[in-house]
Simulated scan of single mutants.
Amino acid sequence: MEPLEIRHHPPDELLLGYASGALPGGTRVVLATHLELCPDCQARVTALRALGGALLQDEAAAPLSDDALARALARIDELQAPATVALRKANPPPPLPAGAVWPRALRDASATRWRWLGPGMRWSRVTLPDAPEANVFLLRIGAGKYLPSHTHTGTELTQILYGRFHDGRALFGPGDFDLTDGDVHHQPVVQDGSECICVAAVDGKLAFDGLVARWLGGMVGM
């Protein structure tokens, strides 16, 4: 398989947050999906982790209590137990077109079947076992279709898995990453020739322009 021509990448502050393990669940899973597809960002995260390790080596050692190791291991067991249960109960992501595959970042997640969102548009709710409160979903939009014009009350992270869309700012294709917030007002339009499938995480809501679009967005939690 030929490497993807990726033009749009996460900003450095998000890569640094990923490298340090400081990102919330929804942001983390979208970033992880991008990293699976982008060797350049993988290299940047590796470099950031190495830099962080070097800085830690220069820090003075902090005293630990005698039971520090036991408490750390107990905490790890607590964190792993819910994820194991969730994995056994997980529903696999819904079917994709021939030639498309789901990212490994979603392997432990549950996802609903494809649900109707509008003519030529479907969506699926994604639940992360370690962050069930995260607002993560999949979008599947047909060729020539478009999401209603909107802005955002928070941030929206979108990773393109399949197909292409243009939102008036730029063309986004497989492997591309997009970060939008309240300063961006756009309308993603899927390009002719193929449907478009994305995974997205939203902090806040999408603020749709039209009344019907706002009603539909509220119904699905966007």
Results as ranks from 00 to 15, higher is better:
L64H: 01
R71H: 04
S149C: 03
W102T: 03
N91I: 03
H34G: 10
G168Y: 12
V85W: 05
K145R: 15
A62G: 07
K89E: 15
G52R: 06
L117Q: 12
L79G: 04
R115G: 06
N91W: 10
V85R: 13
P129C: 08
Q80H: 00
Y162K: 10
G118M: 09
P94V: 07
R169D: 09
L87W: 13
A90S: 08
R75M: 11
D130Q: 11
C38H: 12
A60Q: 13
P63Q: 10
Q57N: 09
R164I: 02
T112F: 08
P97C: 13
E156V: 06
P39G: 09
L128G: 01
F172I: 00
P148N: 03
T46R: 06
P132K: 02
P174W: 06
P92H: 13
D67Y: 02
G52A: 13
L35K: 09
T151V: 00
P82H: 04
A134Y: 08
L48N: 00
A43Q: 15
W123M: 08
S149I: 02
I76E: 11
H150D: 05
A50M: 11
F172H: 05
V126S: 00
Q42P: 01
C38M: 02
R140L: 08
D67I: 06
L106E: 00
A98R: 10
L37V: 04
E59G: 06
W116N: 07
G175C: 08
E78Y: 04
D58V: 12
W114G: 08
L128P: 06
P39D: 13
P119S: 07
E156L: 13
V101G: 00
L37R: 13
A70G: 06
Y162I: 12
P95C: 10
A134G: 08
G118K: 00
L79H: 04
L138V: 10
A70S: 03
H150F: 02
N91T: 07
C41L: 04
G163L: 15
S65H: 03
A90I: 13
D58M: 12
P132V: 02
P174A: 15
L106K: 00
L139N: 10
R71F: 05
S124Y: 06
V136G: 04
A43D: 14
I76N: 03
A100H: 09
A74C: 02
P129I: 04
Q159P: 00
V136C: 11
P119H: 15
I76G: 01
A111W: 03
G99E: 09
A72Y: 07
L73K: 02
L157S: 07
A109C: 14
